[in-house]
Design a protein around this nucleic acid. Sequence first.
DNA 1: ATGGTCGCAACGCGA
Length: 264
Amino acid sequence: MRVATWNINSVRLRRPILEDYIHKHQPDILCLQETKVVNQDFPASFFHQLGYPYQEIAGMKSYNGVAILSKIPLTANPIRPWCSMHDCRHLSVELPGGLVIHNFYVPAGGDIPDPHLNKKFAHKLSFVREMADFLKSTHNTDQPVVILGDFNIAPSPFDVWSHQQLIDVVSHTPVEIDLLNSVQQSLNWVDAVRQFFPETQKLYSWWSYRATDWKKSNRGRRLDHIWITPKLRPFLQKALIVEDARGWHTPSDHVPVQITLNLA
DNA sequence: ATGGTCGCAACGCGA
């Protein structure tokens, strides 16, 4: 079973490359962030025709928005507020065998890495704290659970093009990394993607639109993650970051990240 | 050198 995450930065605009990605990599469950569309206008029939009849969506006008598209039947968990807001940053579903998937779109956090000067950064820190509390109180390590999405944090020095130059840049500051580590420790989450690469190998899933040549400058960050509970570790077979997708026509600034779980 | 580019939707905001 292939499970994927992709911050799509407008699901409607990305239909051509979504189709390309789906044909090439055949995810069974595709989790999207930044769909930027209200539920009424979500391209449901488009995904239905591509083989994803089971769909859970939570969208709003202009911003945010998450979706889970599946070839496998699933049950949606009730949508809950985050930081007392219903801003379409989380969806979770349960599969027939009991596997639970949480799709997160963590706030980007603005530019200034100080919660007293920047409300967006304060929101980001609160959101990640709430993630840790929620996961600890909802699950245990013996349950088969996947959390994935755009976490908007690159935790390791090898998840950014320059640890030194990004240490004060939102997405790689110590306070964010400490909080994401507290999420990791909440349930002994396994970074499913890093398992397949040396700890010191640079890995990126996002490259800014502002670079003249994203590939040449290669100033990337790994903001998109797939984590699994220890219970699922024996079934983890493969991980893939589809870096090519950054160079496809009219790309998102994020690329798809996917894992293969060898579940019977 | 301290910029730059996107998408949505309306001429600004968020990333």
